[in-house]
Design a protein around this nucleic acid. Structure first.
Lengths: 142, 142
DNA sequence: AGGTAATTTAGAATTATTCTAAATAAATTA
DNA sequence: TAATTTATTTAGAATAATTCTAAATTACCT
């Protein structure tokens, strides 16, 4: 495998990322990781990733798309964002941040953590601890 | 229809609520509205509502459960809460508030608006306006 | 009561996702 | 390197929540 549009450096970085997550470096995972992590941050669904993979000449099954997204998520390489009924988004931005969601375009936009302030957090019910805070600001056309 | 466990007063209130929303008062809608609105506030799924309806002796189809939840939501009688992949919750509490979500128990808990403060809201992208803000604090057992 | 439009329904269809079990590929061992 | 083990990929079936369809029923208006 030696695509001209992927640098060897990037590939070996990605391979290391997979290893660190306890995942073997396979052709499919490497190519999907490249799509996910080699550009800027992305919000992606299984359907979109599958389409992109095929558009880039990667023969990959739907099952592998789902397996890979779930494995990357479990490994902490992706954050799951739940904003609409039925479909999951995965976010490559792992920093502490939130989202605008434009329903009419099925589009997510990051809100940097320093651009929003949640103070005065309520007391967590006894016996539980916070596992994450999601702020979603739903937008509509003006 | 004259169940002993439902007051006439409540029924006529509910009927008015339906009328106001432009919905005819049918046996099914009235009984479902009673389940939804006559006790305290609730977070309910289609499956749970269907089970409760049957448990209360109401013969109602799955399709009607979904139709009703969606119509009540469109009419502003219910708020939809999206916190897990696949399933929708509907909240009878229409006040401005947020949620704890206990994933291990599929349970939502209201957070009163005055118990949380989101200041310093980021600027809304040009051409859009906020249609709603959802804060979800995901909880796990300590 | 009679007519019209809304509502309900069973069952099929759809959509996103997960499962299954067989084939393939990666890692490990000899 | 060849053999063996184990993980991965895959097609296709299965599942789960939801929506659709078209026919039967019911509410509402006159």
């Amino acid at each position: 495998m030696h695509e001209t549009n992927i640098s060897e450096a990037t590939l070996s970085e990605l391979s290391g990322k997979l290893r660190a997550a306890g995942l073997r470096t396979t052709k499919q995972r490497l190519a999907l990781a490249d799509l996910l992590f080699s550009g800027g941050n992305r919000h992606i669904t299984a359907e979109i990733l599958h389409a992109e993979a095929r558009a880039n000449g990667l023969a990959v099954s739907q099952a592998t798309i789902y397996n890979t997204l779930n494995q990357f998520h479990e490994a902490g390489l992706l954050r799951e964002v739940i904003v609409e009924q039925g479909r999951s988004y995965f976010d490559t931005n792992l920093s502490d941040h939130h989202h605008f969601y434009i329903e009419s375009e099925s589009r997510l936009i990051d809100i940097d953590n320093q651009d929003i302030a949640i103070s005065d957090l309520p007391q967590t019910p006894a016996g539980f601890e916070p596992a994450g805070v999601d702020v979603i600001i739903r937008l509509r056309h003006k």
